[in-house]
Every structure is written in structure tokens, then in C-alpha cells.
Design a protein around this nucleic acid. Structure first.
Length: 428
RNA sequence: GCGGUCGUAGCUCAAUGGUAGAGCACGAGCUUGUGGUGCUCGGUGUUGCGGGUUCGAGUCCCGUCGAUCGCCCCA
């Protein structure tokens, strides 16, 4: 048996890089679900959910063997049946797998889907980076038109705006296609061959394995060298060039803030043509969302070309930003009433009444463990309930309930049978 | 995977190697059927865990787990 690092210290704790989402953050997460669902519906994206566990090969082939995700961040293990499985590191490859497996092209053309859920990458945890984190994604599968590249950007921006985030900008580039990228890569390698002595050791590794990534090194010397490097825009084929131009045109038509960035590459091999990130002007190195076109993924996974474009949003990062900026989580919350019970008899009757109120769609809070009226009112106050419904011995006997307005302190006694109507009246 | 910092009450944090504390929160009471303000009382803890040095360790050393920052990379 291997050592069980989770079992060591007496109180159990989350395993490294995992985190609990606690009730105190409920408003943030629920605002994302609610707004995300609303935005998805308005933009006509359908829900899809794929399993958290997939075959390793899906990502090795889909994302690319030379990428960091596959090279060192795969959260993989052997099952009892001795298959090697992996906790999905991202959402796009599984969705393409699902598209091919279930022939989803027949469902609609193009297929527009959204997903959300946990993703896993085995790397060193840091702020804004966890081993388990959540992404929300949108994918359009089965269309090559730049129309959808930009629609993907729009749905992302609309989502973030609806959450209350302002000042967003798109960083955009194109990485070409199979026709033009090899030519460019060759030129890039040619250029860096003469510079090999001057670049950092990570860049030497990039030079060997994934030359395009030379472009986003952050070391100062490498940045300087990069200034003289050829840029892909000069090597695009006819198709990629006009695709990019169309995308930029549509971006301008829609008045999206954007900035072309010839050095933007992104870490997954499946991208072709358009790539982009959604950033905040102040903190441009930590993207809130990233995406692009992946016209070859279908072919890699299924043997035929399926053009597609998509985006994924990093939910922890978004929430972190919303908190930092003290943006109010946009959530429509129901007003609540607090049900106070005093005495055993009242507690028994109380549960039936509470349930009756809830069946009438009234949000009812209670804390029957606190014995005294005083303590229950204290909690009612803390929960900011509009009304307290008080059921004590006297009320039980008289078959009434006392309704207390928590703001004014005014109390009225109403017959139990009218409780729903009387409560609703006072909630308005 | 590499380098730095940190880990004390539910939370935020204090304690020259010498009796573990404060604020907030929480609980009880002033007020036995009435919240918000006020007053009184209460420390709720295996100082992350394990070992070592020492008469004595929250404090020093080693290990470990976790967090955090930078690198790598990314959402």
C-alpha cells in the first residue's frame, strides 16, 4: 500500500490543491450558475456534461504530447481494472469526444453547447491556481465561419459583464493552420538558431519541443530577442489571412475592446487560426478566460475534419476578482420570514405550518434548537428576515400566529388558517 | 518540478527560550414571551503533525503536511 497522505493528521483536511467551496461564498457561485444559465439560454447554447474521468489518450492526442498539461500536469492513475484514467484537465477534448461518439452533428448544426464543472491539473498550487478548479465553457462545433469565433467572444464578454465586471479587453492573435504554420515555424526556428546562446534555458527547451511557445517567454532578454523575431501575420496563407481579417472586422462592428497580440500562443496544441484571451487591462497576464478555434481536434480524435471554436472561463479567478473589486454578486434573493417556536407543542405544530408556507413558495428560516424566544429573534434579526412568525403556547391554544415586522416591531395576531395569505400580504 | 515566506481560539492577530493572550464572533445572565444599543461573566486551544536540543520550546534544529509568493505554466 502506498502512503496515504490524507490520513496522517488527526483532523482530516483537503488534499493538496483541493479546496472546499463554503456557504459564505454561496452568493458568488450561485450568481455564476444563475447568470451563466441565463446567458447560455439567451445565446442558445445547450447544456452538456461529460464525465470527470476520461482515458489518458484523449488528452495526450487531443491537447498534444509536448504541452505542459500533458507533460507534467496530468492527474492520472490506474483503476482496479488497471486502465489508466485521468481527471480531465480541460473541457474541450471531452466534448469533441462526445460529439463524435454520439454523432451530435445531427442534433443541430452547428452544435452550440455550454458546460461547467471541475477540472484537474497536477501542478504546484498558488493563488488563483488550484489542482481542482472550475471552468465554464462555451463551444460551437461544426462551423468554420468567423461569425462563430466572434460569437464565442461575445457570449464570454456578456457573461462577465452580467456578473458586473467592467473594462474587459480581448487579446487576440491567429496561429495559422497546417498550411501556413509550418512555414512560419521554420522561419522562427531559423531566427532563433542564431540566438540560441542568448535565450534562457526554458527557451532552449521550447526551441527543441514547441518553438511557437518561444514567443510568450517573460524573461527580459528573451523578450528583447523576440522583438526581432518574425511574426506569423507575415506568413499567413490566404485562407487564414482572410479569416483573421473577418474576425477583426466583426470585433470592430461589435465594438469590442481588443488588442492584437502577435505573441499570443496559448498552451494547447489543438488551436488553429483564432486564439484569444479575455483580460483586465490592469492585470493582463492573468486571463479570466481563454479560447480559440480548434479545427483539427475532430480529425485528431475521430478521423474527420470538424471545425469548431470555443472558450473557457476560470471561475475561481473570476470570483477572486469580483471579491477583490467588491462587486456585489448579482443575485435576486427571495425575502425571508423567520419562524419562531416556543415550547414543544409549538415546535410540533410549527413544522406543519412551516411546510405549508414553503409549499406556497415562501422562504422560511428557523432555528428550533435555540429554546428562548429571545435567541430566536436574535437570529431572525441576523438573517435579515423581513418578518418573524411567532408560535408560542398562547398562539397554539388560540390557533393563531403572531406576525412581527422586524423593522417596525409592529406585531399582529392572525388566525392560523390565514397564515399563508397574511404572510404574503406583508412580504409585498 | 525549483526557490523564498508562513502555520497560535471559529475569524484577524499578539506573546526578549520562562504560567498561551486580545479584538471580533460565540455562549450564559441583567430581562423566565420579544431582536438590533448597553452592561456583567465565560477561553472555547494537543500553538498543523512527528522527532530533536534544553532545567524549560509557540519561540531554536530536522523531518513532514498544508498555505502563500516568485519561477515554470495556466483558468
Amino acid at each position: 500500500m502506498e502512503k496515504d497522505s490524507t490520513k496522517k493528521d488527526k483532523p482530516y483536511q483537503t488534499v493538496r490543491g483541493m479546496h472546499d467551496i463554503l456557504p459564505k461564498d454561496e452568493d458568488y457561485w450561485r450568481s455564476i450558475w444563475e447568470i451563466g444559465n441565463e446567458i447560455s439560454e439567451i445565446h442558445d447554447f445547450n447544456f452538456i456534461e461529460t464525465p470527470i474521468l476520461e482515458a489518458v489518450g484523449l488528452f495526450e492526442e487531443g491537447i498534444g504530447e509536448a504541452t505542459d498539461i500533458v507533460e507534467k500536469e496530468m492527474f492520472s492513475f490506474k483503476t482496479k481494472g488497471r486502465e489508466i484514467v485521468v481527471l480531465r484537465p480541460e473541457g474541450t477534448a471531452p466534448i469533441m469526444r462526445s460529439y463524435i461518439q454520439h454523432h451530435l452533428g445531427h442534433f443541430s448544426s452547428p452544435l452550440k453547447v455550454f458546460y461547467w464543472g471541475p477540472m484537474f491539473r497536477y501542478e504546484r498550487p498558488q493563488s488563483g491556481r488550484y489542482r481542482q478548479f472550475h471552468q465554464w465553457g462555451f463551444e460551437v462545433i461544426g462551423e468554420a465561419d468567423p461569425f462563430y469565433d466572434v460569437q464565442i467572444m461575445l457570449v464570454t464578454l456578456n457573461f462577465l459583464k452580467a456578473l458586473g465586471i467592467k473594462g474587459l479587453k480581448i487579446k487576440i492573435n491567429t496561429v495559422g493552420c497546417r498550411v501556413c504554420r509550418p512555414t512560419y515555424r521554420k522561419r522562427l526556428v531559423q531566427y532563433y538558431r542564431t540566438q540560441k546562446r542568448n535565450i534562457c534555458k526554458d527557451c532552449i527547451r521550447r526551441y527543441e519541443k514547441n518553438p511557437l511557445r518561444l514567443l510568450d517567454c517573460t524573461v527580459r532578454e528573451c523578450k528583447e530577442i523576440r522583438e526581432g523575431a518574425p511574426i506569423i501575420l507575415d506568413y499567413l496563407c490566404q485562407a487564414c489571412n482572410s479569416h483573421f481579417k473577418e474576425v477583426l472586422g466583426l470585433i470592430e462592428d461589435n465594438e469590442i475592446e481588443y488588442e492584437p497580440d502577435p505573441h499570443l500562443v496559448r498552451g494547447l496544441d489543438y488551436y488553429s487560426k483564432t486564439v484569444f484571451e479575455v483580460v483586465l487591462p490592469k492585470n493582463a497576464d492573468r486571463a479570466l478566460a481563454g479560447g480559440g478555434r480548434y479545427d483539427y481536434l475532430g480529425e485528431v480524435l475521430g478521423g474527420r475534419t470538424i471545425p469548431a471554436v470555443g472558450v473557457s472561463l476560470g471561475l475561481e479567478r473570476i470570483i477572486e476578482y469580483i471579491k477583490e473589486k467588491e462587486i456585489d454578486p448579482k443575485r435576486k434573493k427571495k425575502p425571508s420570514v423567520f419562524f419562531v417556536v416556543v415550547g414543544e407543542e409549538a415546535k410540533k405544530k410549527g413544522l406543519c405550518l412551516i411546510n405549508k408556507l414553503r409549499l406556497s413558495n415562501i422562504k422560511v428560516l428557523e432555528s428550533v434548537g435555540k429554546q428562548s424566544l429571545k435567541n430566536q429573534l436574535k437570529i431572525a434579526n441576523k438573517t435579515k428576515s423581513k418578518l418573524s412568525l411567532i408560535l408560542g403556547q398562547r398562539e397554539c391554544f388560540e390557533e393563531t400566529v403572531m406576525i412581527r415586522n422586524m423593522k417596525t416591531g409592529v406585531q399582529e395576531t392572525v388566525p392560523t388558517e390565514n397564515i399563508v395569505e397574511e404572510t404574503k400580504k406583508r412580504l409585498r
